[in-house]
Amino acid sequence: MTAKSFLTDIETIRQRAREHIDRGAITEGYKADRDTVIKLLNEALATELVCVLRYKRHYFMASGIHSKSVAAEFLEHAQEEQMHADMIARRITQLEGAPNFSPDGLLTRSHADYAEGDDLVDMIKEDLVAERIAIDSYRDIIQYLGNNDPTTRRMMEEILAKEEEHAEDLSTLLEALGKKGEPAKPATRH
């Protein structure tokens, strides 16, 4: 039994690299359906942007006895979700697509909802639901990509790991608040 040999013909690799040079990083080895990948990534981008907006609202609206530490968690998550959005947008452009930042239809492209929550506990629950949605949908994207686009798959795996961390953080916050009693409702802003 012979082991499969690695492609060692460097001249062939060099020749292929010169062909279709206008396609940038997309070589003959790219096996995914780019249009589908770009569509999925634009949905993930919308999901991240909606999460940024929801976390930012929760950060500013958090009030009550336990709000300071929870608001800090909301802000940290908002910043990390923005980093995810930037990573996704960058990858879309690498695939010769256009990242869709248009507010028109943002909620219909997003997998997560934009739910404001009435108090601190509701805000945490809404954020946890959104993280759980992202976890499941990003896992599906990763499975779809398989070995056809390993760069996008690795990026989505990195984002998925952070979303799972966010979900765990929020779950821990809910548990801690449950032991300390219901927080006060946010102040009404006019």
Score class of each variant (00 low, 15 high):
residue 153 R to D: 00
residue 131 E to P: 00
residue 117 G to T: 01
residue 4 K to R: 14
residue 105 G to T: 06
residue 149 D to R: 01
residue 156 M to P: 01
residue 132 R to Q: 13
residue 110 S to D: 09
residue 87 M to N: 11
residue 96 E to D: 12
residue 162 K to C: 06
residue 27 T to G: 13
residue 36 T to R: 14
residue 59 Y to C: 02
residue 185 K to N: 12
residue 105 G to M: 07
residue 157 E to K: 07
residue 90 R to H: 12
residue 32 A to K: 10
residue 121 V to Y: 03
residue 125 K to D: 09
residue 65 I to D: 15
residue 49 L to E: 05
residue 69 S to A: 09
residue 174 L to I: 05
residue 88 I to E: 04
residue 140 D to E: 14
residue 109 R to N: 10
residue 116 E to F: 02
residue 129 V to E: 12
residue 46 A to V: 03
residue 1 M to D: 13
residue 93 T to M: 15
residue 188 T to P: 08
residue 163 E to Y: 01
residue 92 I to H: 09
residue 112 A to R: 08
residue 26 I to T: 10
residue 15 Q to H: 13
residue 23 R to I: 02
residue 61 M to A: 15
residue 157 E to S: 07
residue 77 H to W: 01
residue 100 N to E: 10
residue 35 D to R: 11
residue 134 A to I: 06
residue 80 E to A: 11
residue 186 P to W: 02
residue 77 H to P: 00
residue 137 S to C: 09
residue 125 K to R: 14
residue 43 E to P: 03
residue 47 T to G: 14
residue 106 L to N: 08
residue 121 V to T: 15
residue 85 A to G: 09
residue 147 N to M: 06
residue 68 K to N: 10
residue 107 L to N: 07
residue 87 M to D: 05
residue 16 R to Y: 13
residue 169 D to W: 02
residue 33 D to E: 15
residue 151 T to K: 08
residue 145 L to Q: 00
residue 56 K to A: 11
residue 137 S to R: 15
residue 124 I to P: 04
residue 96 E to M: 14
residue 17 A to M: 13
residue 96 E to R: 13
residue 43 E to W: 02
residue 161 A to F: 08
residue 85 A to M: 01
residue 64 G to T: 07
residue 48 E to A: 12
residue 3 A to F: 14
residue 104 D to I: 14
residue 125 K to C: 07
residue 159 I to L: 07
residue 67 S to M: 02
residue 159 I to M: 03
residue 20 H to R: 15
residue 87 M to R: 12
residue 103 P to Q: 03
residue 156 M to H: 03
residue 22 D to S: 02
residue 58 H to R: 04
residue 153 R to H: 06
residue 11 E to G: 09
residue 112 A to C: 13
residue 4 K to V: 14
residue 164 E to H: 01
residue 106 L to F: 03
residue 99 P to Q: 04
residue 20 H to K: 14
residue 174 L to V: 00
residue 37 V to P: 08
residue 91 R to S: 07
residue 29 G to A: 13
residue 80 E to C: 08
residue 2 T to Q: 12
residue 39 K to M: 10
residue 2 T to V: 12
residue 183 P to C: 08
residue 186 P to K: 03
residue 46 A to R: 05
residue 145 L to P: 00
residue 149 D to C: 04
residue 91 R to I: 05
residue 98 A to W: 07
residue 90 R to F: 06
residue 24 G to M: 09
residue 136 D to S: 11
residue 77 H to Q: 14
residue 4 K to E: 15
residue 18 R to I: 11
residue 76 E to Q: 10
residue 139 R to T: 13
residue 172 T to S: 15
residue 58 H to Y: 06
residue 7 L to S: 14
residue 1 M to I: 10
residue 178 G to V: 04
residue 188 T to N: 11
residue 129 V to I: 12
residue 14 R to M: 12
residue 29 G to M: 12
residue 167 A to Q: 02
residue 133 I to Y: 07
residue 183 P to N: 15
residue 28 E to V: 14
residue 162 K to S: 13
residue 146 G to T: 01
residue 39 K to S: 11
residue 21 I to F: 11
residue 45 L to P: 06
residue 148 N to V: 00
residue 11 E to V: 09
residue 184 A to W: 02
residue 28 E to C: 08
residue 44 A to L: 11
residue 117 G to F: 02
residue 109 R to V: 10
residue 56 K to G: 06
residue 131 E to N: 09
residue 56 K to F: 07
residue 96 E to P: 00
residue 52 V to L: 05
residue 86 D to M: 08
residue 149 D to N: 04
